[in-house]
Write a protein that binds this DNA or RNA. Structure first.
Lengths: 218, 218
DNA sequence: ACAAATATTTAGTTATATCTAAAAATATAT
DNA sequence: ATATATTTTTAGATATAACTAAATATTTGT
């Protein structure tokens, strides 16, 4: 059985792999895990020994099939627990991350499969991210950045890329949440800021904000 | 913040304290935790340093007010999670212990209080044990051993003292479960075995079994 | 009361997961 | 292409929570 720490490393590597197709660098993992590069090297060596990553000195790491399977199972647990917290315990979607970070390490396949059933086999979590099924299959999502929409197009907000507290608070203040329908009214050519309509209100957002809002086009 | 291990020690000491009013011995803790006496000594010294137990060399340990508070909060979490697993996810009450042992260490007051509300503020868990409230108050339960009942008396099974797998399987096979109404038909003077009636069936149980079934007299 | 048995503690070891500082490899820039 | 900068690894240290073996304290039985 793996430690919390090992599971967290596998999860981090998985997420980084999805962004860059090449090997995952020590530094990238260190940044994601908020730890030191030397600690990452130690852990990569250990995970390589356990055949969970393929690791070449100075060349970074990639998940093995087994490592990927474990990473996905942790992500499945994380997203199902987030769904539980929001849908059953009425947390708001920006409060649940830290608790789900703990719950994702609970070991019991039976538990997580029953939780899945109890929630009605949800396809996406409260942030709009897809929930892997029992066999590790993940439904592909057509998500594009809000900044890729053209004037008059609209989308449903499905994912927040930057999940820093500051950004989550900003969204909350502006009443922007997962599921919101957002229409692009006008794009300012000078700084790419965007005038959008959310519900009945019009709002100006920066390009940076628009890059961190992923929508499903409708 | 305390480690899982520290929390488990506090919980073990709490349970042992309830049985013997004097100081909790190193050996008693070692047996309960399935570890070595020397490991217990190490931990008691650490917990004493953190003012969570009062510890005197060779004299055993007692929980401080703070230590007791933490122990009770862990027990509250354990019992609420067991209630969730049984009442919402349809686990049977003999399957939930190991999962609850993990869930009891999740850190979030908000989570546990919302879970409590979601479950309807239950007073007892699926084993019949009382659930401490948010402030650490535990309702007293009038529980007596089935072996203390006299002929013709009856009780509702509220707690299983011995929770070994073998015993739980025995009870399952005999269809004895928390909430069962048990009537004492006759007591054999020779070996104190008891003829009981559970539902419509009569059944002979040994004194040992009767000592491990705690009932609320009705 | 004292020897034997039992319980407890101490000392020293191991494994995990982290860190800092220094060394080594790789990438970059002129 | 070579010096400089960056990245990565190694070596050595720390903290936690276990363990074993040996030492010490307490309890028990005669």
């Amino acid at each position: 059985m793996l430690s919390f720490s090992e599971e967290n490393y596998l999860k981090a590597i998985y997420h980084i792999e999805k962004l860059q197709s090449n090997g995952v660098s020590t530094n990238a993992v260190a940044e994601k895990m908020d730890t030191k590069a030397s600690s990452v090297t130690d852990m990569l060596q250990k995970l390589a020994e356990k055949r969970l990553v393929i690791y070449k000195k100075y060349k970074g790491a990639l998940l093995s099939a087994k490592g990927k399977e474990i990473a996905i199972s942790v992500i499945r647990k994380h997203r199902l627990w987030e769904s539980f917290l929001v849908n059953k315990l009425n947390f708001s979607w920006d409060e649940v991350h830290d608790i789900a970070e703990q719950l994702e390490h609970i070991q019991s396949d039976e538990l997580i499969n029953r939780l899945d059933a109890y929630l009605g086999f949800p396809k996406v979590d409260p942030h709009g991210d897809p929930i892997p099924d029992k066999d590790g299959n993940i439904a592909k999502q057509e998500k594009i950045k809000l900044s890729n929409l053209k004037e008059t197009q609209q989308g449903i907000l499905v994912t927040i890329k930057d999940s820093s507290d500051d950004f989550l608070r900003y969204l909350d203040k502006k009443s922007i949440s997962i599921g919101s329908t957002i229409k692009v009214i006008a794009i300012e050519p000078f700084d790419k800021s965007i005038l959008v309509k959310i519900g009945k209100k019009e709002l100006m957002i920066t390009e940076n904000v628009a890059n961190n809002l992923l929508v499903k086009e409708i």
